[in-house]
Each structure stands twice: as structure tokens, then as C-alpha cells.
Simulated assay, not measured.
Amino acid sequence: MTANLPAALDLSADVAALTASLLDIESVSGNERTLADAVETALQACPHLELVRDGDSIIARTSLGRAERVILAGHLDTVPLPGVPGSRGTVPSAWDGEVLYGRGATDMKGGVAVQLALAAALTEPARDVTYVFYDHEEVEASLSGLGRLVTRFPDWLTADFAVLLEPTDGTVEGGCNGTARFNVTTTGRAAHSARAWMGENAIHAAGDILTRLRDHEPLTVDVDGLAYRESLNAVMIKGGTTGNVIPDRTVVEVNYRFAPDKSPDDAEAYVRSVLEGYDVERTDAAAGARPGLNHPAAADFVAAVGAEPKPKYGWTDVARFSELGIPAVNFGPGDPLLAHSDNEHVSADEIRECLRALKTWLG
């Protein structure tokens, strides 16, 4: 199949084959239109679903009057295609036995295929289900299709519980850590490097910042029975103007991944305490999400999966559901460590097992 040509998706096909069909449609962030068209067309053939589209995002739902409603959500976009010649994680997809290669295999077209298969097959689910397919997840948060849907279609995103089908190796990962970024600035006095004693070197002054971060012992915080490991690291450093000038300003960018018991303001206070005495500016922050595993629907879901739940260390869109008061977990096929790699792949059995667990829970 040629990438980005209109494609008819067979939602009754084997879910692994459906994943391959999704991979064959290139959908790098900002270029989701063709895939969104294919998803919308396929869902329009399901008479038991109500449907709404906004840009390149689609919401479909059952309305059976069930006592509970759950959301299954996944993003349509991928990171850019590999730039390495001969990479296997590209478009179109490729099979190696029962292993499927292609951009988005783990993050997260395997999960989207499971959503689509369930949407078509579950005409009488035990719980009402809202299926959310959204654009622009792999770019800055201001462009998020899910964030746009929350604003424009709040009634469609009302639910008791949500599952985000990000790759988790088939394990329930509750909630997620929050994330915050900070600029930590040192200042000095510029001088010619041949007369360095006339200046004050701002890069050298940043050495103590780096030492504190290197020696920092990250916390592990228990939140609702799951142990969230935090991390605090320098991720970028900028300083200097040219090769013969003592630098008068240096900025160390710091990223703090914090447990969901903290707010962004709590996180900022903690970073300021670690880097006391320095100019610290918060540039970005997103709250985490508590695991919500005490909700009855969550307990039923964990039982259906049959594996001990784990914490989610990275930030995901479960945090958006948490802000809406909806407990949410991550659960999807594929190894998250392969996401965005040039060797991105997922096994057919992992996708099928994810479908089986969700169908057991919902059906």
C-alpha cells in the first residue's frame, strides 16, 4: 500500500492485520487527515455508535443507558519517520513472522486498532463506551487534539473511568508522574579570555548547580499503593557568545518528573529548595494523575487483565482525564521502550491479548 492514499479499514479483520493497515497510512503530527478520514469512514458503518468529528479528532460512543460509562482513548499521530536508511520502523509496515514493524507500531497504532476493533464488535457492551481518537499528541500541549475536545465537547467526555491505550507491555499502569521544566540562571561579567581575571565566568558558576543535581537522591513516593519514582536532571545548558569571551550568563534547563501527590506549585517549591540561592524560573509544567485504582471499574479492569498494576513514570494524557475528575489508567500493547525508536515493532499476540482483556472487561 502506498502511504497516505485513502484506505478502507476492515474493522472485522484480525486486530494485528488492522494494526498493519493503520501503520500503512502515514500520520506524522500535523498530517493526520488521511488516517482520520479512514477512521471516521469505518466508524460511520457502525449503526450502534454516535459520532462527532472535530478537525482530525473523532469521538464515537454507545448510548445504551448503562449504569457506567468508560472512555477508551488513543492518538492518531506519530513522531516523524526515521531518518536512518534501511530502518524497519517506517511506513509502510512490514512483517517479520508474527512481529509487525512500522512507525507507530507501539506508539500507538496497536492501541488504536484495539479501540477500532472493540468499537465495531461491542454492539451491546456491559458499560457504555466512548471511543476517542485524537490528533497532535506528539507535539506541544497547546496543539493537543484531546485538549481541544475537552474544551469543545465536554458532554462527550463525561465518564466514570478512562483507559488510555498507550503501550504498557500489556500491564495496567496507574496514573502518571507530573513534569515541570525550569531555567536556572547564573550571571557573571564578560571579559576578553586573554584577560580572564577581569571577568566572572558564568559557566563555571553553574558547576555547583550541576553538582547538586548529580548528587540529588530522587524520591520514591507511594501514592494509592503504587510507588512512583521521581527524577530531577539537567537536560540542557546554554552559555557563552564566542570563543574568546568570558561568558556573563549561563542557563541550565532542569526537568523534574514528580509523583502525582504533588501539584506543579509543590514541584516548583521542591526544586527551589534543592537549588536554593539560584535564580530559578518555571517555564512549563503539567500535573500528574493519581492512579484511581480504588474505583470499582478500575478493580474490574485489573482483574480482567490479570497482572499486578504498576505506576506510570512518564507523563501521559491520563492527566487530562484526571483534571476532569475521571480516574484513568494506561494500558496498551507493545514495549514502551520501543516508542519513537527506528526499530519500532509490536508482536501480533500482544495486540490480540490487549483486545481480549478489554473485551472481557467490557463485554
Rank of each mutant, 00 (worst) to 15 (best):
A16V: 04
A16M: 00
T19R: 01
A20R: 02
L23H: 04
E26W: 06
E26F: 07
S27V: 03
E32P: 09
A36I: 05
A36G: 08
A36R: 05
A36V: 02
A38F: 10
E40G: 15
T41H: 15
C46D: 04
L51Y: 11
V52K: 07
G55K: 09
D56P: 03
D56I: 03
S57V: 01
I59G: 11
R61T: 08
L64I: 06
L64M: 03
V70S: 03
V70K: 10
A73N: 00
L76Q: 01
L81H: 11
G83E: 13
R88P: 01
R88E: 04
S93Y: 11
A94R: 13
A94Y: 01
G102K: 00
R103Y: 01
G111V: 05
A113Q: 13
V114L: 14
A119Y: 12
A119E: 10
A119C: 13
A120M: 09
A121G: 09
A121C: 08
H136Q: 09
S142F: 03
L146D: 01
G147E: 01
G147D: 00
V150K: 14
T151W: 13
F153A: 07
F161I: 11
A162L: 15
L165F: 07
L165Y: 07
E166S: 03
P167H: 07
D169W: 12
G170S: 13
G170L: 14
T171K: 10
G174L: 04
N177Y: 00
V184R: 10
T185Y: 09
T186P: 06
G188H: 14
R189N: 05
A194T: 15
A194F: 10
A194Y: 12
A196K: 13
N201S: 05
A205T: 11
A205Y: 03
A206H: 01
I209W: 09
I209N: 05
D215Q: 13
E217D: 15
L219K: 13
V221D: 00
D224R: 11
L226Q: 01
S231H: 03
N233R: 02
A234M: 03
V235Y: 00
T242S: 14
I246S: 10
I246E: 11
V251P: 01
E253V: 04
E253Y: 02
N255Q: 15
F258S: 00
D261R: 04
K262D: 08
D265K: 07
A269R: 15
R272F: 11
V280M: 09
P291I: 05
P291R: 04
G292A: 06
L293Y: 00
N294H: 14
H295M: 06
P296F: 14
A299Y: 06
G306M: 14
W315G: 02
A319V: 02
A319P: 06
S322H: 15
E323K: 05
G325K: 05
A328M: 09
N330T: 03
F331Y: 15
F331I: 08
G334W: 08
D335R: 12
A339W: 11
A339H: 12
D342E: 13
D342A: 07
A348V: 15
E350P: 12
R352H: 02
R352S: 12
L355T: 12
R356N: 14
R356G: 07
T360A: 09
L362Y: 12
L362S: 14
